[in-house]
Write a protein that binds this DNA or RNA. Structure first.
Lengths: 194, 194
DNA sequence: TGTAAATATGCATCGAGTGCAACTAAAGTC
DNA sequence: GACTTTAGTTGCACTCGATGCATATTTACA
């Protein structure tokens, strides 16, 4: 980890923004918090916020995007003979494990799942979405058609999000939430093991 | 259908907005089209657009929301002994059948699926989302816990959206798209038949 | 130390979305 | 048919997310 001063500063600012956003979202809710407030709390200009995150909502997913990397990596490490369903389930397990480990606040995750997030003006770079990246990885790793791959990943994401939202909404413990999401994921995938 | 003049006018305006939006989205794409343009094309003020649709994106889902009603109704009509998975699959079949019947342009549907839709300022009325409404209906109709219901519905929605997006992206015929989405839906649900 | 490259910031502007108040047209009343 | 009530339309001002551009300010590197 030999970062240049520049690099370190960038990381620090980025983290400051994430922390500030997390704190403010928890305190006032997502909608009630403005980018201006986040930037002020992180001691940078509003304009600078947008050099780190394309959209206000992206700060919520900041770590989520890194989690996707984990999933893509798992998919890339497919064992010979491993079936797509198993592989994808394994990828989700790793991603979910990561999620809790890196101490996302419930507030952050909760908001993230709650939001039917969209994009305002942003011309939505599809290749950057969770679905796209995981499905693409699955297609390259296995002998599977795009349609099936996308359906599988989308079903899994849906199940996981739905389960997590309800479980967290009901105030379950982290362990329970983790267990329930993993279970929902497997159930959603089961039928694709044709 | 004995509507008052007022009611008829409202429907006409609403339809004019939907039509104008569909046309413009097809011609220029979703992002490039402004609400101002849609309103102008429908010959109403910009402000009026927002009395019909809460968000720009809602005009895309205009008919989709009505489809959800169909699904909710199917779920409400559960046959004694019918399992949640069968019931939900039936609901999705009906909703999908409706979709093509009422002549949604591929452009409209395509855009709708493409968008990782979100909400700008709008404090997202959750009880109004597809997921919420279908899951809630399922919980009342069957003896099923919220967590499972939400996971199921979310998985199904994901699978259907994913399959539809890919199938349409590949230029399949309407029949094929319909068949593939129905299949993806069933596969996503299969594992929930515990 | 000076210069090139990367960041940060201010400013102007666009588009979505909301609240409010004034206006217009339809509906119901006498 | 004129009168009032009520629903729906519109303009206006404003907030906030987001982008482009031009200008500082830093850091890197010779």
């Amino acid at each position: 980890m030999n970062m240049s001063l520049r690099e370190r500063k960038k990381q620090r600012t980025r983290q400051a923004l994430i922390d500030a956003a997390g704190r403010l979202f928890d305190e006032q809710g997502y909608e009630a918090t403005t980018v201006e407030q986040i930037a002020a709390a992180a001691d940078v200009s509003t304009r600078t916020f947008f050099t780190y995150f394309r959209h206000k909502a992206d700060v919520l997913y900041a770590n989520s995007f890194e989690r996707i990397d984990v999933g893509v990596r798992v998919i890339g490490s497919r064992q010979p003979g491993e079936r797509p369903v198993q592989l994808l389930a394994r990828a989700f397990d790793e991603m979910l494990a990561e999620s809790w480990e890196m101490g996302l606040t419930a507030g952050l995750v909760g908001e993230a799942f709650k939001l039917p997030i969209h994009s305002h003006r942003a011309s939505v770079d599809r290749s950057d979405t969770r679905l796209e990246r995981l499905a693409a990885a699955l297609v390259s790793a296995c002998d599977i058609d795009r349609l099936t791959a996308y359906s599988m990943v989308a079903a899994a994401i849906g199940a996981v999000s739905g389960a997590a939202a309800v479980a967290m909404g009901e105030g379950r413990t982290d362990e329970e939430v983790l267990a329930e999401t993993a279970r929902a994921c497997r159930r959603a995938l089961a039928g694709f093991d044709s």
